[in-house]
Structures are given as structure tokens and as C-alpha cells.
């Protein structure tokens, strides 16, 4: 009985490793931080994959991931070569992969904002500053690794109160992504939340926000955010000039529907240096070593 089982298992093991080796080396794989509802992301990035495939003439595949860290790890581990990162995740990822480059950002990403939104029951009104009125309320960030949903709002909360968010608010949570932050504050599960302004604006335009239940009470100063980052070794793998071709393809993107899905009005060139402020903030808060 036991011998039989061993024999079967050994055979199974060999097949298992054999079957996993058959992935084409000439596939450009990319991912994106899961900052919004997955269905939307899959739809958006499948469109991008088709677009890039046509422009670059290699197979392009998008893989969805469940966390910001998973996106960074996949990039670092060379399982994806291209990624749509937020400010912070981009800084983290590029610091882990020598030679990697930020190649393109959205027009809107040069001066991005975060909103603090509040449930109507708080009675809070829009203000230029974060005031003591928010103290003691419940508060949710987006993902732990999010720039617009965590890093920047936390920075300005610390600046306003000189205290960690856990000390300012009675309860601090991490919803996971911006859409969920919106839903949680709208439902009153949390009284306050930090959200990416672009997600808010798009949802508002699409009529997906109950404006009687939730409103913006604070806007952060602007900062650089999302960008396309690419590994430095793509030229070796896909041929000389590949990085530039990817960059050009992104900059050339004019398809209204594709751009609308981000939503961005277009992509412009960017370099790693543009994200130095983000890196500084990350170090101050202790997210980056």
C-alpha cells in the first residue's frame, strides 16, 4: 500500500514540475496595485494589455494581485516587468530593483490630491485645515501601502495634530482600497475616510455616490502620484530599445475609452526624481527604512 502510494506521488511530483516550466519567455507581464474594485481593474488593464500587445508586438499579459505588496514583490521578483504603481509603491519597488525606471505618469498625477471624507452624521463641514473637530471619530485609510489613501493623509494628520492617527482617532482601520473606503464611509461604518481624489471624482460623475450621506471635508496639498514603472533589464530580455518603445506606446495612448477608465486625460514622461518627496514622507512616517 505504502510503496504504491510513494510511486504514485513521485510520478505526480515530476509531472508537476514539468508542467510548470512551460511559460513563454517572450511574454511581457504587467500588474497594477489593487486600489479599486477588481472588476474595474481587470476590465481596464485587459484593455491596456490588448493595446500594448498591438503596439509592441510581443505577448502582453495582465495579472491581478490582492495587495500592494504583492504587486511590488512581483515586480521585484521579475515575475512582472511593468507595473502601474502609486507614488509610494513605485518608490518601494524601484528601490528594490536597481535600474528600474518610472517612465510615464498621468497628466493628473503631477499634482494629485487626497480627500478626507466624512459621513453626514458627523456634521462636519469642508475646511481648509484639519481641526480638532475630527478628534475621537472613527477613521479608515485605504490600503496600508497606498500613497493617496494612507501615506499622504497620514502625513498631514500627523502634521496637524503632532500625533499618530491612532491617537487622534478612536478607531483606525484599513479598508483595502479606495472604492471600499467610499462605501464604508457612505454606510457610516467609519465616520471619516481618506480617499484618492480621482476615484472620488469619477464615482461622483458616474452617479455612484450618495452625496446626502458623505461629503469631502478636507483636501491635502498636492503631490506626485501614480506612474508606470518598468524594470531596467527589459532591454536584455525583449531587445534593445524595448523600454523606450513601451514608454512611447504609453505616451501615445489616445484611446478615449482606455484613458477614461483610469481616469486620466493622457500620459506624460516622468523620471524617478519626481518622486523624491514621496520617499521623504515615507521615511518620516517609517514606512520606508
Amino acid at each position: 500500500m505504502a510503496i504504491n502510494l510513494i510511486r504514485k506521488l513521485a510520478a505526480a511530483g515530476i509531472l508537476f514540475f514539468a508542467s510548470s516550466a512551460a511559460v513563454s519567455a517572450q511574454t511581457l507581464v504587467f500588474t497594477a496595485i489593487p486600489d479599486e474594485d477588481e472588476t474595474k481593474l481587470v476590465e481596464r488593464f485587459r484593455g491596456i494589455a490588448d493595446y500594448l500587445e498591438e503596439k509592441l508586438e510581443v505577448d502582453v499579459r495582465y495579472i491581478p494581485v490582492k495587495s500592494y505588496a504583492a504587486a511590488v514583490s512581483a515586480f521585484r521578483n521579475n515575475q512582472v516587468q511593468l507595473a502601474w504603481f502609486g507614488g509610494l509603491s513605485g518608490v518601494q519597488a524601484r528601490s528594490l530593483v536597481p535600474g528600474s525606471q518610472a517612465i510615464a505618469q498621468g497628466v493628473e498625477d503631477q499634482a494629485f490630491n487626497s480627500y478626507i471624507i466624512a459621513h453626514k452624521s458627523t456634521g462636519l463641514e469642508e475646511n481648509e485645515k484639519l481641526t480638532e473637530a475630527v478628534r475621537g471619530k472613527t477613521f479608515t485609510f485605504g490600503s496600508k501601502g497606498s500613497t493617496s489613501g494612507r501615506l499622504i493623509p497620514e502625513y498631514y494628520i500627523r502634521e496637524a495634530f503632532n500625533q499618530a492617527p491612532e491617537e487622534v482617532f478612536s478607531r483606525v482601520g484599513f479598508s483595502g482600497n479606495h472604492t471600499r473606503t467610499l462605501r464604508l464611509v457612505e454606510a457610516g461604518t467609519y465616520e471619516l475616510g481618506a480617499i484618492n481624489y480621482s476615484v472620488w471624482t469619477k464615482e461622483l460623475e458616474d452617479g455612484n455616490i450618495d452625496t446626502d450621506a458623505v461629503k469631502v471635508i478636507y483636501t491635502t496639498p498636492s503631490y506626485p502620484n501614480y506612474q508606470w514603472s518598468i524594470r531596467g533589464d527589459v532591454n536584455e530580455r525583449f531587445g534593445e530599445g524595448f523600454m523606450d518603445r513601451v514608454k512611447q506606446a504609453l505616451l501615445d495612448m489616445e484611446d478615449k475609452e482606455l484613458l477614461e477608465s483610469f481616469p486620466r486625460s493622457g500620459f506624460i514622461p516622468v523620471s524617478n526624481d519626481a518622486y523624491t518627496p514621496i520617499e521623504m514622507v515615507g521615511k518620516q512616517i517609517g514606512i520606508i527604512d
Binding site: 504504491n4 504514485k8 506521488l9 510520478a11 505526480a12 511530483g13 509531472l15 508537476f16 508542467s19 510548470s20 516550466a21 512551460a22 511559460v23 507581464v29 495579472i63 512581483a74 521585484r76 521578483n77 521579475n78 515575475q79 512582472v80
Partner: peptide, 22 residues
């Protein structure tokens, strides 16, 4: 059982290749 155990490795999906340097 032998059928399942032998067959199961084929249905794990491809995933992404391992880079051993990692």
C-alpha cells in the same frame, strides 16, 4: 485517489515562472 493525486498537479494553473535568484 491515485487518479486525483496524479491528475491534480495538472490543474494547479501555470502561474508565473520561478526566478531562483529570488
Amino acid at each position: 485517489l491515485p487518479v486525483y493525486i496524479l491528475g491534480a498537479p495538472f490543474f494547479l494553473g501555470e502561474g508565473l515562472p520561478i526566478v531562483w535568484g529570488n
